[in-house]
Structures are given as C-alpha cells and as structure tokens.
Design a protein around this nucleic acid. Structure first.
Lengths: 209, 209
DNA sequence: TGTACATCAGTGAACGCGCGTTCACTGATGTAC
DNA sequence: TGTACATCAGTGAACGCGCGTTCACTGATGTAC
C-alpha cells in the first residue's frame, strides 16, 4: 500500500513486456495462475494499468506468457535432474527416463505456484513444441519425455510395440501424483515421503509400460 | 433473464438446503466449480440470495456440499463399472481393480464439470471416508480403490510387500490421465481413443505395482 | 547542426460488472395454554 | 377448539470490492530535411 516510485530513468520503459511477464511469474510463484492479476503486475512495475495493453491484447495473453515461462522452468528442472543422475546405475537411458518423472515432481513440490500456472492454460497439442516453453537444451517438457522414451526403446528397455502414446501414460501417471502432492490430499507430505512416492511411481511406469 | 416464478406452494421452502445443493450440482455439471455461484443457485431455486445463508455459512460451504455430491457420483460411476465387468476374464479381483480406473476415467469424460468440482476443494486425508462422498455400497471412491487393492493382494495378484501406499500410485496414475483427457492436451480425443488409453493405463498400473 | 514533425509508449480518469455478504425486516408455522 | 405467542425461514435493499477494460490525452524519442 506504500506508494511505489517508478524505478526507471527513461519515459519509455525499455522492455515493459518483459517486466510485466517477470512480475506475472512472481505473482504466479506465490499464488498460482489466479494471482496473475493484470493490475497488480503493472503496479509492481510502476506503470499505469492500461499500459499493459500496449504489449498484451488481454489479461489472458499475459497469463499465456507466464504459462510458457513456467513450462520452460519445468523443462529446466527436468534437465537439472537428468544431469544430477548422469552417473546412473542400471542403464543411462533408464536413469534419464526416471529423472524426467522425479524432476517433474520435484518441480511441482518446490514451485507449486508455477506448476499450477504451467497447466492453467488448457494446452492444445501444438504447445508440445512451442519454443517459448523450452529449457536449456531447446526442448519442452513434453519433448524431453519423448526423447527419454526414444532412448529407452533404443537401449532395449522398452519394446518398440509399446512406444506409441507412451508419453501420455507416463506423463499422466507422474502428473497425477504431482497434483495429489501439490493440491490434493497428499499436500501435507514431507519431502522424504514425497520423493519416495515419486521414485516408486517412476519405477512403476518404467516397469509397467 | 426471464423472471422466474418461485415454484413452491408453501412460504417455507421445504428443503431449501437440498434444493440449493441440487442447483449447485447442475451449475458444476455445466461449468465446473467456479460456476457454483451462490446468487445463481438461489435464482434457480426462486429464492432471494441471502436465503442461502440460513443453510450455508459461506459460499465455500455450498461448494463443499456440491463437491461431496460429486465425489459420491464418482463412487457410483466406479460401482457401475465394476458391475459391468462382473463377468470378468483374468480373475475377478483384477477385473474389479481395473474397473476402478476405467470407471474413474469414464466419469471424468462424461461429467467433466462434476469431475472438476469433485477435486476443487483441496481434500485432506480425512475426506477419504466421509459418508457424504460414498456411493451405493457406502464406500467413497478412495475406499473402493483400497478395497480393490486388498482383493488384489488376497487373490495373489499383488505382493503384500507392495500394498502399502499403493492407493496413491494407482490413484495418481489414473487421476493424471483423467485430467489430461478433461483439461489437458488430450481434451480433443474421441471416446474410443480415450478408453483405449484408459485401459492401457489401468493395465500398466496393475502390472507395474 | 538545427528544426518540424510523425510515431507510439505511456498517462489519468472513468466504466460496468456481478459477485459475496450484511442489515433490519416480515410473516407463515407449530406449540402451549 | 380457539387464541397468543415465540420461532426462524424467508425478504428487500444496499454495501464494498477489485477487477478488466476503454477513452481521450500527452509528451519523449527518432528521423527527414
């Protein structure tokens, strides 16, 4: 409620669009997608509410940009996890596949607001490969999963006959557990119990596919 | 926008609470949990907005009642599916277990609004056995799943060592696929493709547990 | 180098919206005598 | 059987809220001459 002094030195903002998206990401981090309020984002940037309309046609457009950024953050979390297990026991391909799931769930638990935001805009299948949703290696979360599954087949850990649509089974399984842990009845679980469940889930998927 | 004539013959409504919950269920069916608007529910029942406060402390309380009803409907959908496969190939216990998942996903697809409403109120673990959430046999969806897992163990289809917390793995997997089909990128899928995926998922869980 | 001007990113004020919720009330019903 | 009265489920009017969005505008910047 304190007056905010616009902290910019030029009349033109420089990169207001980016600043608004960053503010939106902060809001989402704290309160999920519904907290991405256009007026609050402009307030934080130190700009009048309608200035946002120079850069976004809509509040929905701002939320869409935040959603993309959240997906990219998820991709990076998966990449982090994959690098962490590079020294893998039981086959590199399998390790990389398991890491997709555990990284996914770790992200959901450490950044619940962003996780919710990442799935707040009902995605069409086109979004699977949107560059704005990609991580460091240029792949979206979905593409990271696909690649891991391909590797699994190539390593002989997954019969090629079962490869088709395997993304959706693996994704669904892991995503469901993530939502139970973030918004569902498993909300209160400690980090250890949660990651134990995450491990069991990814193994179950790898074995059951 | 047409004026609504209150269709009741007594000044006292009779069972306004029930009528409001029913209206809320209708609203949720069409538009999900956010469509459960207190004023609209009273409008439909033909009563002034504040009349609702005789029966619910809050809008949240109304939504909670709708949520319970949606969970009960989900339980009934699972029971329906289980009866449908009573003549089961490959073991009765396994058939009943698979039916929990396929019934769950069928419900999500045929009643997406109710499905969303059923999980709109972040459930604590206590809700697992709330009588208001039970189906015909007096069991909540969670309890139906638990029972199916117990049967699986008793039939020798699931090692007892893996029984613990198996609810959450099975539930998570099926729930995740359901949300992908209802709100996610698989929204557009036809009924046949969807139920094929549902079958694969439940089999994957049964095999992977 | 100086000037005129078009551009367009920002301002400031205002709007309608529909909601949830509160207030003081009214009048039908059931019960006690 | 009749009457008085307490109860409490409903009414009607009003509120504040904060939002998204639109309007006519202003004034810094870059460019053409």
């Amino acid at each position: 409620v304190t007056a905010r002094v616009p902290d910019r030195d030029t009349y033109r903002h420089g990169d207001l669009r980016r600043a608004l998206v960053d503010a939106g990401i902060d809001l989402a981090r704290t309160g999920g997608p519904t907290a991405v309020v256009l007026r609050e984002a402009t307030r934080r940037v130190g700009v009048s509410p309608n200035a946002a309309y120079r850069h976004f046609v809509d509040r929905a457009a701002l939320l869409g940009a935040v959603c993309d950024a959240a997906q990219a953050a998820l991709a990076r979390a998966i990449e982090d996890e994959q690098e962490r297990v590079r020294t893998s026991r039981g086959g590199a391909a399998r390790g990389r596949f398991l890491a997709v799931g555990t990284g996914y769930i770790r992200f959901a638990r450490t950044e619940p607001g962003l996780f919710r935001a990442a799935f707040s805009v009902p995605a069409n299948l086109d979004g699977r490969s949107a560059p704005a949703r990609a991580g460091r290696r240029g792949l979206t979360p979905f593409q990271l999963l696909s690649a891991a599954l391909d590797d699994l087949v190539q390593a002989g850990d997954l019969p090629a006959a079962r490869r088709r649509d395997a993304e959706f089974l693996a994704w669904g399984a892991v995503h469901g557990l993530a939502t139970l842990l973030v918004d569902g009845p498993l909300r209160g679980l400690g980090a250890d119990d949660a990651s134990r469940l995450a491990d069991r889930m990814t193994v179950m998927v790898a074995d059951g596919l």
